[in-house]
Amino acid sequence: MNMDAFTPWLDALCGRIDGMVVACSDLAQRRSRIDLPSEELTTLLEAAKGEMGFVHLSAISCVDWIEEGEFELVYHLWSYEQNQLLSIHIRVARDLGRFQSVYDLYRPAGFFERDIHEMYGLYFEGAPDMEKFILTEWNGPPPMRKDFDSEAFVGETFDWQQYNPEWLQEIVAAGGGVVVPPTEQRFSQRKKVDGPDWSGDHPQAKRGQE
């Protein structure tokens, strides 16, 4: 197979699957993105694996869009024949909390779905193993959800060490603190570098300020 077969295949698939949108396809960069209604996922995965050789599931990423009340699942597929990466984006309702597993098609999904389950609380039906793997001794809510505030949790749970103890204050009062000045450090004989301008004149800096 060659790369030329890839784009016509994607176009033909658009006609076959309802609601499928090829959001962007950049074959030179080997990246393509497809947006899909969640119920069509298995159809597309079967076609991709069977017809185009997308046998390698690189990752399943989960993104929590809390304002829309949705989880976005991204399936990154790689084809060893086409040398193309296909990202399939679907959205699942956040409240429902369950979705179909793709373990039958892709074994690596077993790890990623297990991970998403404990980090986001999204249950995958049909996965062989939904037990906890990393957070076996964690009783709180799924921590990667946006509504879990880990800083507040840390503030409630842990105490901190004194950062300005008396012995240090004595040293600082006596004029101590820094032991070796930077000019005498070992690798300080550097050449002068055309460093970036940090003042913020760059166009992106202006965009950042807007």
């Binding site: 970036p196 301008d197 940090w198 992106q204 800096a205 950042g208 300020q209």
Partner: peptide, 11 residues
């Protein structure tokens, strides 16, 4: 060595 990026603390 690098393309300048804007002020990284407010980027």
């Amino acid at each position: 060595l690098r393309t300048p990026i804007p002020n990284p603390l407010a980027w």
